[in-house]
Amino acid sequence: MPNEGPGFLPRILTIAKNAFRESVRDRILYNLIVFALLITASAIFLGELTAGQEARVIVNLGLSATLIFGAFISIFSGVSLVWKEIEKKTVYSIFSKPVGRGEFIVGKFFGLSAMLAVNIGVMGIGVTLALLYVGGRGLIGGVWASVLLIFLELTVLTAVAIMFSSFSTPALSALLTFFVFLIGHFSVSLLDLANTMGSSSALGFFTAVYYLLPNLSHFSFITETANGMLPPPQMLGGAALYALVYNVILMTITVAIFSRRNFK
């Protein structure tokens, strides 16, 4: 019997599973080997150099590496995920089926987010093992709270990368997403700087940047974690809500752009 297809959720799930499988087969998870080597080496050698500060160094280094590795994966996979489908014309077979363009974009986003979750989850395990090795058991709770915040930040970065790639080339999209990553971490400082400058145009510009670009400092808790602090629940809740709202807005923009695209 001809089939009009299931509801939109199973289709999104199917596309997400395939995007995850694509990332795995593209050997993206190989970065974990480099990360494992880095953490093992730091656990063994850095402790000797920092007399009694092993656990703190491991948390700082491990979580920073998790963020940097994750950001690279978000940017480079995010900008190529949709672009590759158009360039390789695989979208032809997808959109001739009862699949909405929005379902495709959201599915791709979830697939890459799932891959990031696995990736940084494994990194979190690596940091935990290193902490157990150096006797820093007390920091493990904070590490996992920070891993969750990093994951939320990376989903925002992924959504930014996918949005840029819906109308731009991968190289330009990667560059723009990288700028968003950098500015997003310093936008509060930029706003403070503009306030001290006293120029109304600078203040206007930096205020616009502050509200337009994601404020990624909402997700930063690495230094505090290394100092043995735990993020308060309202910070975690606020960050989750911020990521959710931001991702919904970015996905809506991306779908609106992508829905108007002609595939030549």
């Binding site: 089926k97 009862p98 909405g100």
Partner: peptide, 16 residues
């Protein structure tokens, strides 16, 4: 979009 569930399509030089 739903109608496309009743349609088949093989593109020129299909890519998968």
């Amino acid at each position: 979009v739903k109608m496309h569930g009743r349609v088949g399509y093989c593109p020129e030089n299909p890519y998968f």
